[in-house]
Structure formats: C-alpha cells, structure tokens
Design a protein around this nucleic acid. Structure first.
Lengths: 152, 152
DNA sequence: TGCGTAAATGAGAATCATTCTTATTTTCAT
DNA sequence: ATGAAAATAAGAATGATTCTCATTTACGCA
C-alpha cells in the first residue's frame, strides 16, 4: 500500500476523536511506514533522529491513545517493556512466534486456535475481550546457524 | 494431596541441586499449600505475616531458582508484575482465562490448541521452547452481577 | 482570520517491580 | 566440628512507565 501522507494521518486521528498534533502525526507515520515492532525508547530515539523531538511522556501518552483507538497494537513479549505495531485495519488479529536467539518475530493466524479459544470461553461462561499468545523458541535461521559446521 | 512436610520440601530442593535454606522452604511451602497465583510482594507480606522475615531480594532470587528448576511457574498477565504458581509435576501445562473485573483466574488446557501451536511451529521451521496464552475478559460471576436487577 | 478554552506537551520528578551490591550468615561436604 | 562456597539482608540502583505542573497548541466559533 502507498505510504500515508500527513493529511491521511491527520484524518485518521480526527476520525478517532484525537487531536492531530505534530507529535502524534510523526509517531503514527513512523509506525505506519516502518513495518516493525517498536518499544517506546526506540520510537523516542527514531523520532529524534528525524528531528522530531517528541518527549518520552508524550510518546507514552500518545501510544496509549492510539492503542485505545485500535490504531496501534500493544504487545507484551514478557521482557519488561511493551512493543507497538501499527494495526492494519478492521480484523488484523494475529499471534506471534518470537525467536529467543535473534529476536525475530513471525506473525501467524490459525483459525482453529481462534475457534478453540472461543469454545473454551463458552464452556466457562467467559466473555472474552482480548487474548495474547506468544510462542517462544528458536527460528529456522538460528537453527540453521547452530547446525552449521565450524569454519576450520 | 497431603500437605508437604518440611522434610519433603527439603528433599525437593536438594533433588534439584538447590540448597535447602529456611527461606526457600518457607517460600515453597507457601506456594505448595496455597493454591493461588502470587506476585512477589504478596509472597513477601504473607511470609512476614507468618514470622518468616525473608527479604525481597531473596524472594526474587529464590523464585528465579525455583522457576529454573520448574518447581514453580512464572506467569505474565501483562499488568507489570509477574505471578508465581506451584508447578504440579511433570506435565502440568495449562493456559489462563483472566477476569478483567474481579481478577479471577481460571486454568484450562485445550489439546487442539496445543496441537495447532506445534503445527504452526512446524510450518515455520520454528523450534518452540515455551508459550504463553492468556485470554482476558469477563468471567461468568461478573457477568451475572452485571445483569442483576438493581436493588430498589 | 483571530480568540479563548480545553486539551496536549515538555521536562524532569516520582513510582513500582525487579536487580544489584556488599557485608554477614548459613549450608553442607569432609 | 570446620571452612569454603553459596545464600541472605538491607537498602541502593535500575529501567520502564506514569505523574506533575507550567507552558504551548489545536481548533470550534465569532
């Protein structure tokens, strides 16, 4: 898809009842144009690199607002800091494989798992709002490296 | 099952190459005899209530050792602090439903989900080590309360 | 187009869970 | 019983995130 223009992002914010500040536009642009899972500090540094001196407090506050509006997803990989990825429209739900060696993240969606989750909720009279599922392990690339013969 | 005696716990620790200190025994006893998901501060306060004045640092270090030895499971419900539950032997894997209203936790195991997770890993050449799955929502009890008629 | 107000921001202090440091105490093999 | 290696206590340090409050900005309305 084409990169979003500032006007697009401005509209996106206003459509979600968020004021279109330059800080939020810069943040959203970064998340939309770079397909990556950022943590707050990476966003802070990346914005400064681009001469957008957004404060850390604003980054956290803006991310919270964007997550509330489902423009951004917040991910918890269990290492003590949250990651953020842009949400790609209505039904972009997916889960993650996380390589413990190189940190690579692979997204996946398994219909059967999603269906079984709903079944479990139903059995328990539980009304689900969200769920998180992360599978940790060693990715294909890192496994190959491991089995590579030593360079003599 | 009968409550574990101090001797049982001592053996359990030594069987896992851990020195049997009074602090670790107290911690393990608490986790084994109370079927509950504790966070570190709750463990600290509970132990002090029982006249076992274990320091916070020791609680964290002991929990780390117990988790390494798979005597205890570490859970991340995404609210900024870790929870700990005793592991009930070899294959006690289970996932969690978490009520966002009352905090209640229901454990479940769904064979089909487990199988599909392995299938996803296989498709991606991914070697899984662990996974976490938490479903957040409103539990049956809280839903009933919500629909309860007002008391006039 | 300019104004006023409510909302957003910046800077750094505060918080909270967790980890680290160092002196002291304890465990346990011998 | 003894001593070396490991564990502990107490509180300082850390790191991610949230809060405070003075200042700035967005934007509906005139």
């Amino acid at each position: 898809m084409p990169k979003a223009t500032n006007q697009d992002l401005k509209k996106m914010l206003r459509d979600h009842e968020l004021k279109a500040t330059s800080q939020r536009i810069a943040l959203l642009k970064l998340l939309n144009n770079t397909y990556k899972h950022f943590d707050a500090e990476e966003l802070y540094l990346e914005l400064h690199k681009r001469q957008k001196n957004v404060s850390r407090a604003t980054i956290y506050r803006s991310l919270e607002a964007l997550v509330d509006q489902e423009l951004v997803n917040k991910l918890d990989f269990g290492d003590g800091r949250m990651r953020y990825e842009c949400s790609r429209g209505g039904d972009d739900h997916h889960d993650h494989l996380i390589c413990e060696q190189c940190g690579k993240i692979v997204e996946f969606l398994n219909i059967e798992i999603e269906a079984q989750q709903l079944a479990v909720c139903e059995e328990n009279g539980f009304l689900p709002t969200t769920h998180t599922m992360y599978i940790f392990g060693i990715c294909a690339d890192c496994r190959n490296l491991e089995s590579e013969p030593e360079i003599g």
